[in-house]
């Protein structure tokens, strides 16, 4: 039963090799989908290319259905999966800052790495900027410490928080994704084409 490393089925000594292989698959798929192009990524915010929404939402739905299905079949112990603690204020502030960064830079961290890998100089500059951003956070941490640690709701899922059955929520999420795919396809036809 998974998770295989957590449950001692695969020796943790394999960790870094597995990381390398899964990372390769991750990078290969992102680049193949066009995520190494900032102009393609930014399209989701202007309506000329919804590749981000299509890939991101499809991946989220496939993985969450897979995880809960495997849990249901007894192949995966969901209680052992890492759930990020919800520090509400800090996550909101971070999300807003990242949203602005997305529109200025046209990349997010993972996609910028795929851009670097194929020779995009703008992606390289973005990566250097990220390094500086993290350094600024580290150096000014005493200023941010209170906000960073405020409002921790713990390792909580959205379904626990709202008291919904996970199955119903996942069904709802899938429907929202399908509606979003349909609506954005109509929008994309009406928006002026951008050549890139």
């Amino acid at each position: 039963m998974g998770p295989l490393i957590t449950n001692g089925i695969i020796d943790p000594g394999w960790n870094n090799y597995i990381a390398l292989l899964l990372g390769m698959a991750f990078g290969f798929v992102l680049e193949s989908a066009g995520f190494s192009s900032s102009r393609k990524l930014a399209g989701v915010f202007y309506g000329y290319d919804f590749v981000v929404l299509k890939v991101f939402f499809t991946a989220a739905v496939v993985s969450v259905i897979g995880i809960y299905l495997m849990g249901h079949l007894g192949w995966l112990d969901i209680s052992k999966l890492y759930i990020q603690p919800a520090y509400v204020q800090s996550t909101i502030v971070g999300g807003v800052i990242m949203g602005i960064g997305f529109l200025m830079g046209g990349f997010c961290p993972g996609t910028s790495f795929t851009g670097v890998a194929i020779g995009k100089i703008d992606a390289m500059v973005f990566s250097v900027g990220m390094f500086i951003g993290v350094l600024i956070f580290g150096e000014l941490y005493p200023l941010f410490e209170n906000l960073y640690n405020a409002g921790n709701l713990g390792y909580i899922t959205i379904t626990e928080y709202f008291g919904i059955q996970p199955g119903i929520f996942i069904l709802g999420l899938t429907v929202v994704a399908l509606v979003a795919f349909y609506v954005t396809a109509i929008i994309q036809q009406k928006v002026k084409k951008v050549d890139y």
């Binding site: 990242m98 960064g101 997305f102 961290p109 250097v128 900027g129 390094f131 600024i136």
Partner: peptide
């Protein structure tokens, strides 16, 4: 943008 993303993340 990278700087903002680094900070925000």
């Amino acid at each position: 943008g990278g700087l903002f993303f680094g900070l925000g993340s």
